[in-house]
């Protein structure tokens, strides 16, 4: 008897609480920037593609839904010739973002990806690439890598000394 009254009181009290349910889709929930939603490819501060096609996201992907092919441009920069994510397979685990050595691949708090046609869930590079830096501003992989590319010669990266002269005889 007592428990019945207690339950009724609990329900009654909730009439005066703030609503937790929101009127989606008219109203949107706030998702944290770290939320694991739609995957994007970002660009470095200079506007170049961050992805260097190293294949680490593809290999770590537990459902193997990322396929890409690296290529090299005339400046020696590597980029993905194609980059394809099959979102009908993706489980949004975020391991690709963990594995990415250049902060190129990032998960975003966008979850509205439903499609009437399943083939539309296959995203190509032009669908994935954004024009900004995403969650990690300021990082430029080629500024820390030893590779020389157009506009950045050997010895010009962070923490590098100028190239040695092998014909130098000084001790």
């Amino acid at each position: 008897m007592l428990s019945h009254i207690r339950s009724l009181a609990l329900v009654f009290r909730h009439l005066f609480r703030k609503n937790i349910t929101i009127q989606y889709p008219e109203e949107k929930a706030r998702l944290s920037p770290r939320y694991r939603g739609r995957i994007i490819l970002s660009r470095d501060p200079d506007g170049g593609e961050r992805c260097v096609g190293c294949q680490l996201c593809a290999v770590v992907c537990p459902v193997d839904c990322i396929a890409l092919q690296a290529a090299e441009d005339e400046n020696g920069r590597r980029f993905p010739e194609f980059f394809r994510i099959n979102f009908s397979r993706c489980i949004y685990c975020g391991l690709c973002e963990d594995a990415c050595p250049t902060y190129a691949i990032q998960l975003t708090p966008d979850v509205e990806m439903a499609e009437y046609d399943r083939p539309n869930l296959v995203y190509e590079k032009e669908d994935l690439l954004i024009s900004g830096e995403g969650k990690y501003p300021g990082y430029n992989y080629y500024k820390v890598a030893g590779l020389s590319i157009g506009g950045k010669d050997k010895g010009e990266a962070e923490n590098e000394s100028p190239p040695i002269n092998p014909k130098d005889l000084m001790p």
């Binding site: 294949q55 593809a58 290999v59 992907c61 459902v63 193997d64 839904c65 990322i66 396929a67 890409l68 394809r84 994510i85 099959n86 009908s88 397979r89 399943r118 083939p119 869930l121 296959v122 190509e124």
Partner: peptide, 13 residues
């Protein structure tokens, strides 16, 4: 065993 991209190579679901 580590071969990647199995479900995305053919661009089909």
């Amino acid at each position: 065993r580590r071969s990647g991209g199995r479900t995305a190579i053919l661009a089909t679901v």
